[in-house]
């Protein structure tokens, strides 16, 4: 089944300058009871976003009128903790297409990429610049160019280069999914089983 294709995105961004944002914050466990992938965006960052009575907390960035856009910019070590893919689903479902941080937890990164949510790992310095710039000018646009693995603040930079596995890059640009690929290898897998497991 194809995933959403990604090539270039120009968008404003939503800054979340907090480190070690774990997947329990992104989507608390009590909201994991659904058996489908849809609708998790409503509870994205639930306990930071709403108070006990369900009223939006004004000081949380998703509730701020200053910020909008398809790019979430977060402090280092984003997505640590639980392997719940619901975290990636929630971010995507909310409307983000890219998450920028200076460091991502492994499982989160895999989960995000498997859902066509691009993780862009930038340097600490560049991340800092993004926070400073968006703080002073929330209308700042950011360009994410997957083909050239480049992220830039518009207009006029600065820019940073990001790493991504060439295989994953191809998948995202073409909208391929790993499962289709694995299914196409079935004969090879059966052959391997015969040679190795017996």
């Amino acid at each position: 089944m194809p995933i959403e294709k990604f090539s270039t995105l120009v968008s404003k961004c939503v800054p979340l300058p907090i480190e070690n944002v774990d997947t329990d914050q992104i989507i608390p466990a009590r909201f994991l009871k659904a058996t489908t992938r849809e609708g998790f965006g409503a509870n994205l960052f639930r306990d930071w976003r709403y108070d006990k009575t369900g009223k939006p907390k004004e000081d949380f960035v998703l509730n701020s009128k200053r910020y909008s856009g398809h790019i979430l910019v977060a402090g280092k070590n984003f997505g640590s903790g639980s392997s719940r893919e619901h975290a990636a689903w929630a971010i995507k479902d909310y409307g983000f297409k890219v998450v920028v941080s200076s460091f991502f937890a492994d499982i989160f990164k895999n989960n995000a990429l498997n859902n066509g949510l691009l993780t862009v790992q930038v340097s600490d310095l560049f991340l800092e610049k993004m926070f400073v710039r968006t703080e002073s000018d929330p209308s700042t646009e950011v360009k994410v160019d997957l083909e050239n693995q480049k992220i830039s603040l518009l207009p006029g930079g600065p820019e940073d280069i990001f790493e991504i596995s060439q295989y994953k890059k191809k998948c995202l640009i073409n909208g391929y999914d790993d499962i289709d690929y694995l299914l196409s290898l079935k004969n090879k897998i059966i052959e391997w089983e015969k040679n190795t497991l017996s």
Binding site: I107, D178, I179
Partner: peptide, 22 residues
């Protein structure tokens, strides 16, 4: 190691996973 749900689907369908060696 722990995996996400898309990866659970990979294992169910092919008994394999795509992994970069850490």
């Amino acid at each position: 190691f722990g995996i996400g749900t898309s990866e659970v689907e990979m294992v169910l369908s092919s008994q394999c996973l795509m992994q970069t060696k850490p």
